[in-house]
């Protein structure tokens, strides 16, 4: 069992061999579930709809979208509609029996809505604001995913979670992939992105232990830091290995599984 996270930055730039690579793995009896991102496309469509996106800065200096009610509606529309269906279409046109789902379908992703967020305001002071519609993943219900996988389908899941009050929530795609990989007892979770993996001191880090990754986290730039964090979360949920790899190379999935030009984080020793 493999969970693949396809980053929003690479959906349009996936190597032309990617779909056939996935198909070959499925034909070889591998079960595959896909989770996708797409934050930048949400911003682009929101702006075209005249909904200006508000970005906020955390005390740690991280700039994020502020997901208000209108934004979570656009987010759901773009993630679960446009991006999810584009990926399903790519898979189906290559003979893969893909099914598009969001995290709210069959309660796949449950999250706790964040009540308050602490931001740095324009005066440089810390202020607590309403948490909007973002959440922290609390539970994965994998029963539908297991049923679909057993029947030969490839689920494609968008990172939208259901709150305990039955609201739609924006959750991070990398962490959604990690939690889903954990719930599916996956052998590997692969984060497909637009770079080869974790770069430190201008060099690709090819392998890390769980402990190394945890220790490095504060030194890693935002974006990649969330991927490495998601890797450690997946490993702590007994996923055997977490891989960060580029989607812009021939057969990116099988190449990542062979540990070629990528970052592999595992519980074992290096």
């Amino acid at each position: 069992m493999i969970v693949i996270k396809i980053g929003g930055s690479i959906v349009d730039g996936l190597h032309e061999s990617t779909m056939q690579d996935i198909k070959a793995l499925i034909n070889n009896s591998e079960k595959i579930a896909i989770v996708h991102g797409g934050g930048k496309e949400v911003t682009r469509i929101a702006e075209r709809l005249g909904k200006e996106q508000r970005f906020i800065v955390s005390p740690g200096g991280i700039r994020s979208r502020y997901t208000d009610k209108e934004t979570v509606e656009i987010y759901t529309m773009v993630m679960s509609g446009k991006i999810n269906k584009e990926i399903v279409l790519m898979l189906r046109s290559n003979g893969i029996n893909a099914v598009g789902l969001s995290g709210i379908d069959a309660d796949i992703i449950r999250a706790e809505r964040k009540k308050r967020l602490v931001i740095i305001d324009e005066r440089g002071r810390r202020v607590a604001i309403d948490g909007g519609y973002t959440g922290k993943i609390s539970k994965i219900n994998a029963s539908l995913l297991f049923s679909l996988l057993e029947q030969g389908y490839t689920p494609v899941i968008s990172p939208i979670a259901l709150s305990d009050e039955y609201e739609m929530l924006n959750v991070d795609g990398d962490r959604a992939a990690a939690y889903i990989a954990g719930a599916l007892n996956a052998d590997a979770v692969i984060f497909i992105t637009n770079v080869d993996g974790l770069i430190m001191n201008d060099k690709l880090v090819t392998s890390l232990t769980y402990d190394d990754a945890k220790m490095l986290l504060p030194k890693i730039g935002f974006g990649m830091e969330k991927k490495v964090l998601a890797c450690t979360e997946a490993l702590s949920m007994n996923v055997k290995e977490a891989i960060i790899a580029s989607g812009d190379r021939k057969d990116p999935i099988s190449s990542a599984l062979r540990h070629e030009n990528c970052t592999v984080i595992s519980n074992g020793r290096r």
Binding site: G60, I62, K114, N170, K226
Partner: peptide, 23 residues
């Protein structure tokens, strides 16, 4: 966190929040 109460500020414990604010 400062909260307004009858035109003056009161305080309540600030919630600790993570920095993962979604996509």
């Amino acid at each position: 966190e400062l909260v307004k109460s009858n035109d003056r500020f009161d305080i309540k414990p600030a919630q600790a929040v993570g920095e993962d604010w979604g996509e």
